[in-house]
Simulated scan of single mutants.
Amino acid sequence: MKDFIFDDFQNCVDESLLRHKSILDILTKMQDSQSRINRAVAKSVTNCGCVKINAEKQCLPTSDDDISALNECLKKHLEGQLCDNCRDVLEREIGNHMFYITSLCNSLDLNLYDILLKEYDKMNTLGKYTFR
């Protein structure tokens, strides 16, 4: 059974997209929205300071260790939590990005919910062995 929220969202995006119907417009707008997400994360570090990036070389377990050791070893390099303002900005930018991803799906006659289900099934089947 399809999830009607996804279908409704996909239909709403299709009806809302007026100026940027060209696949080239959609691709470049999607790239622009990704850049805006990156910028919002950077600004939460450099301007607001609510989060801090503490990056260092990732340690990898020795060959004797099993794959579950990776979860303990690899780090996010992120400290702190987003403040309400930075959270609002990032939610808005990610929502904008989802709009253009959905527009791309519409242009290519792809169903967003089907894509999500396939990815979910792949993650459930392979689990941590998807190596992402």
Rank of each mutant, 00 (worst) to 15 (best):
Gly95Glu: 02
Ser16Ile: 04
Thr28Phe: 05
Lys118Arg: 12
Gly80Gln: 06
Glu56Ser: 14
Arg92Met: 08
Glu56Pro: 00
Glu56Gly: 08
Thr102His: 09
Gln31Ile: 03
Ser107Glu: 04
Glu119Asn: 11
Lys76Trp: 09
Thr102Gln: 05
His97Ser: 12
Asn96Asp: 06
Lys122Asp: 11
Gln34Phe: 08
Asp8Tyr: 14
Lys29Gln: 14
Thr28Met: 09
Leu82Gly: 01
Leu18Pro: 00
Ile26Leu: 10
Glu93Trp: 02
Leu18Tyr: 09
Ile26Tyr: 05
Ile26Thr: 03
Leu60Asp: 08
Ile94Glu: 07
Asn38Ala: 09
Leu90Cys: 06
Arg19Asn: 13
Arg132Ser: 11
Arg36Lys: 14
Asn111Arg: 09
Lys122Cys: 04
Thr28Ser: 15
Cys50Pro: 01
Leu126Gly: 01
Ser68Cys: 03
Thr46Trp: 03
Gln58Lys: 12
Asp121Leu: 12
Gly80Ala: 06
Leu17Cys: 07
Ala42Tyr: 11
His97Tyr: 15
Leu117Lys: 13
Asp88Thr: 09
Glu56Gln: 10
Asp3Asn: 15
Gly127Pro: 01
Glu56Lys: 12
Asn124Val: 06
Glu93Arg: 15
Thr62Ile: 05
Glu119Met: 10
Phe131Leu: 11
Ile26Glu: 09
Ile53Arg: 12
Leu110Thr: 06
Leu104Gln: 07
Lys118Val: 00
Met1Thr: 06
Arg19Val: 05
Asn11Asp: 11
Arg19Trp: 04
Asp121Asn: 12
Ala69Ile: 00
Ser35Ile: 01
Thr62Trp: 05
Phe6Trp: 15
Met98Val: 08
Glu56Cys: 06
Asn47Asp: 10
Ile26Lys: 07
Gln10Tyr: 02
Ala40Ser: 15
Arg92Cys: 08
Pro61Asn: 11
Val41His: 10
His77Tyr: 07
Gly49Asn: 05
Ala42Asp: 14
Phe6Cys: 03
Ile101Glu: 13
Gln31Phe: 02
Leu78Glu: 02
Leu108Pro: 00
Asp84Trp: 04
Phe131Ile: 05
Ser33Lys: 13
Val13Asp: 00
Ser35Tyr: 01
Asp109Gln: 13
Gly49Thr: 05
Ile67Met: 07
Cys86Asn: 08
Ile67Phe: 08
Asp65Lys: 14
Leu17Pro: 00
Ala55Met: 04
Asn71Gln: 10
Ile23Val: 08
Met30Phe: 11
Lys57Pro: 02
Leu82Arg: 03
Ser16Lys: 15
Asp84Ile: 03
Lys122Phe: 10
Lys128Gly: 12
Ile115Cys: 09
Phe131Met: 14
Asp114Cys: 02
Cys105His: 15
Cys83Arg: 12
Ser35Phe: 03
Leu112Gly: 00
Lys118Tyr: 06
Asn111Tyr: 06
Ala40Leu: 03
Leu78Met: 05
Val45Pro: 05
Asp109His: 13
Asp121Gln: 15
Lys52Phe: 08
Ser103His: 10
Thr28Ala: 07
Asp114Ser: 12
Ala42Val: 13
Asp32Cys: 02
Asp121Pro: 01
Leu108Asn: 11
Ser22Tyr: 04
Phe6Leu: 04
Leu17Asn: 14
Lys43Asn: 15
Ile5Glu: 07
Asp3Tyr: 02
